[in-house]
Amino acid sequence: MDLFNSIKKLFSKDTSNNSKDVAVERLRLVLVHDRADLTPGLMQALKEDLIQVISKYMDIDKEEMDVTFDSKDLTAALIANIPVKGFKRSV
């Protein structure tokens, strides 16, 4: 944590648990998906397809795998966090 934030914490009323900040962040994420027309079902389908493709090359941890979509300002990103358990050696 940088100095600025730590001083801010000292001076401000407890802002860490503001329900307003929670609302803004939840709203932002919901709208990112709404605007891109990405439903949870679609994200699940994408995730399953990703598993299929990547499994051809690597042994991945399907349970721990996480795929999210986010966007800020004018850029959008698909972020996939896929733990690899091992590699498949070609014969």
Partner: peptide
């Protein structure tokens, strides 16, 4: 109190 979105928050979004 930080318990309601401000106009600026709504308008930004």
């Amino acid at each position: 109190k930080g318990e309601m979105m401000a106009v600026e928050d709504v308008n930004d979004i």
